[in-house]
Design a protein around this nucleic acid. Structure first.
Lengths: 183, 183
DNA sequence: GGACACATGTAATCGGTTACATGATTAC
DNA sequence: GTAATCATGTAACCGATTACATGTGTCC
């Protein structure tokens, strides 16, 4: 998914500035689709405007640069719907944590412990964020994806909490000096 | 994770050619860490060799170009371990499927149905692949990550099977013409 | 006094993909 | 005959990140 489509996706849920789009894409609900930085969002928005898929409205503010609030047009909306109807790429899961787990035997137990805690904290955080969002927000798509996310993350967290110790043990056993074998 | 680290990761589990590394990164066990194409793997391998982190051995074959089998060196191994000890990026999940689900109301029910079936098939396929790999392969890291993957995917699949219909219904209800409201 | 949130934008750079080039072997 | 698998490699291109540039208001 390109930054272009990401902008259309976010704008289809309501007006936003480039700054807000970045926030949504790195933190909010849309972080499941694509991350993007300012350097890619601002040019994408400018191009989208020149193509007539979005419109801008400047809101001057005292002190700060004027906010440029973007709105999706009908043309933009239909381009986005068409995009969604095309075959999409597969879902992907990229896990530096699993790479560490895979190599647990070669790593110091502390590194495993840290990675595990970090991963657990991350899942808890994302779970919390999902639970905090509007419980019954009347938008069925949001409710469905929210429940899906909660279910998957609870499962992941459970697994990490139940089997985390076993992973640490792998590293500890491998780290033991040979002399221990005599005991 | 860069293609460079990916090569080191794969070679730390055994010798491989560039061709094999690509296969492992797009299909095999290592697809959880990074995808890579030939255009990035071959140059990375060449650079790794010039830095002394891997060695090459050519195996001539009749007809085909000689296979260039790469092996990791001690220097390569320790660079890889050091890399794993550094703080890693967060795990990420990118889901075009969830984007479709989020917009279920705006899409034709058939598109939702297709996306759902595709996603289920993908999860089943990945699950099957994990179950097919060596049940007790004596490598503890592999066993742990394998069990983790199976647990998470089973949970995902269960959710899709139990709540998939509800998602299709969202699209169907939204697609209903207004006159239906009279019934 | 310093860090952080708000707010927009450009330029250099980089990492990676896609397409190209080459070619034998095997399976349908 | 035609597609897929094996097998390596280069060059053009592209999308996105990082760093830079600028500036105010607010919280600690």
């Amino acid at each position: 998914m390109s930054v272009r489509s990401l902008c259309l996706a976010i704008l289809s849920f309501g007006d936003a500035t480039g700054y807000e789009i970045r926030k949504e894409s790195t933190e909010g609900r849309f972080s499941y689709f694509e991350d993007a930085s300012f350097g890619s969002i601002y040019p994408a928005l400018a191009r989208l405007e020149s193509e007539g898929l979005v419109t801008v409205r400047e809101e001057p503010q005292a002190g700060k640069p004027a906010r440029k609030v973007y709105s999706i047009t009908e043309a933009g909306r239909s381009e986005f719907i068409n995009y969604l109807c095309e075959p999409q790429a597969r879902d992907t899961f990229k896990s530096p944590f699993l790479l560490i787990a895979l190599n647990a035997e070669q790593l110091p137990p502390d590194v495993i412990r840290r990675a595990l805690e970090r991963r657990k904290a991350q899942v808890r955080e994302e779970l919390q964020q999902l639970m905090d969002t509007d419980k019954e927000c009347s938008h069925p798509g949001s409710n469905w994806t929210r429940s899906y996310g909660i279910a998957c993350m609870n499962c992941t967290l459970d697994y990490l909490e139940e089997h985390g110790e076993a992973l640490i043990k792998i590293a500890e056993d491998a780290a033991k000096p040979v002399s221990d074998a005599a005991e």
